[in-house]
Design a protein around this nucleic acid. Structure first.
Lengths: 226, 226
DNA sequence: CAAATATATGAGCAAATGCTCAGAATTTTT
DNA sequence: AAAAATTCTGAGCATTTGCTCATATATTTG
């Protein structure tokens, strides 16, 4: 289900001894540090290696290209967040509508808020490269989790489900990103989280239709999407 | 009110003859073309000049650095969008709540949807540089326009206004950006627009309080923000 | 211990990039 | 038409970047 890197993005060598694992970890950590300290422009393989306390050659023994390193790092980060959201959604399956709304909002924000600076840095770094597949995989994952959440709300039905899921996820993830790019993220976060829950609850509440009744499409404009 | 570039971001020379103005326009256009064709990685000053049909020297006569060129281009683009939204908001001042919701959603999406590819390209290019001031100025502009819109809804009051404005703007702009990064933006756009209106209407409707009555804060968590 | 395997080193190459500058070409002014 | 002002040219410099490879060190295996 996870996007598998191809060509130059695939890791070069798998570590077998303990020290090499530690080296890779150091490289990952150094990458984040360089990114945080100097931004995407300062992110050179030589600098990363220096900061990690290894030589460039070592870096290139595990990653065939700078892109591959970033790819692995972003992949890792997204995977953690995706897993957290999936878990939360499954744990709250069958909950009430407003609980569902809160569940997704909290899960997503918490997953990203763990380290705002890292999230921001990795995002900026990722836009340079062509890793749309990673972003797409993440979104697909969120879609599936949220879809499951909405499908199991007792006695309610949402149509058109695809469109609703897409829009809700877009609004929550996109809105959070805007917050994270802003200065003063931390201070704004609590209020934003509360408002995002209000938004989600109000939205889902306004478009829900009671089950087993004839469902009249709430909007005339949209029907379905591929 | 507009952010003024300082240091290396300030244009170098002002055009006085007609041909130089055309040259600058060609450089702008070429920048967009190169960006669209090869992405941020391929955006070099030599390539831009070549595509524009001028020499690099000419480019550097008007822009002291590559950054300055991009800064001017993004500034221009954001300004156009900001102006469009401001105008729409002012034109619909005093409208009903759901009209207000639709107004902002339509104005913002239309401003960005004019040329999806350009929006996307410029956004990606801008993340590399440090032009947070431009983004901040744009957001501040949107905030003010939306605040004016909500303040003039007859007989309704929104509190805490700052928090509501921030969240609504974040959700609309962020959600739209997610859509624009996705594949198949065009096909998804109509459905998303409709859902975004539903989201906005449901949200604003759920938090409105009748004027001249004692306003009870709808959420306990959030009060105000600096 | 020795052979085999795994890991680490870092000087330096090839390519690319941002940008300059001395002067040519064009337009405007006198 | 000459002088002045403006605009344009593009070869090439200084620097940076991603990355390699011959060699050295460390760890495991037989």
């Amino acid at each position: 289900m996870t996007a598998r890197p191809s060509g130059k993005l695939k890791p070069r060598k798998r570590p077998v001894q303990a020290r090499s694992l530690a080296t890779i970890e150091a490289i990952f950590e150094a990458t984040i540090q360089v990114l945080l300290h100097g931004g995407a422009r300062a992110l050179t393989t030589n600098r990363i290696a220096e900061r990690a306390g290894v030589s460039v050659g070592t870096l290139y023994q595990y990653f065939p290209a700078k892109e591959a390193l970033l790819y692995a790092l972003v992949s890792r980060h997204l995977d953690k967040a995706g897993q957290a959201v999936e878990q939360a959604c499954q744990a709250h399956s069958g909950a009430s509508l407003s609980d569902c709304a809160d569940t997704f909002v909290d899960a997503y924000i918490d997953a990203k808020a763990g380290d705002v600076a890292v999230s921001r840095a990795l995002y900026h770094a990722s836009t340079e490269l062509d890793m749309q597949d990673l972003g797409a995989a993440m979104i697909a994952r969120l879609h599936q989790a949220v879809r499951g959440l909405l499908e199991h709300v007792q006695g309610e039905r949402f149509e058109p489900l695809d469109s609703i899921v897409f829009s809700w996820v877009a609004v929550v993830t996109g809105g959070t990103r805007v917050l994270f790019e802003e200065d003063g993220t931390a201070e704004r976060l609590p209020a934003f989280r509360a408002q995002l829950k209000l938004i989600s609850r109000a939205y889902l509440d306004s478009i829900r239709t009671i089950e087993t009744k004839a469902s009249s499409t709430p909007t005339g404009e949209c029907q379905s999407n591929v």
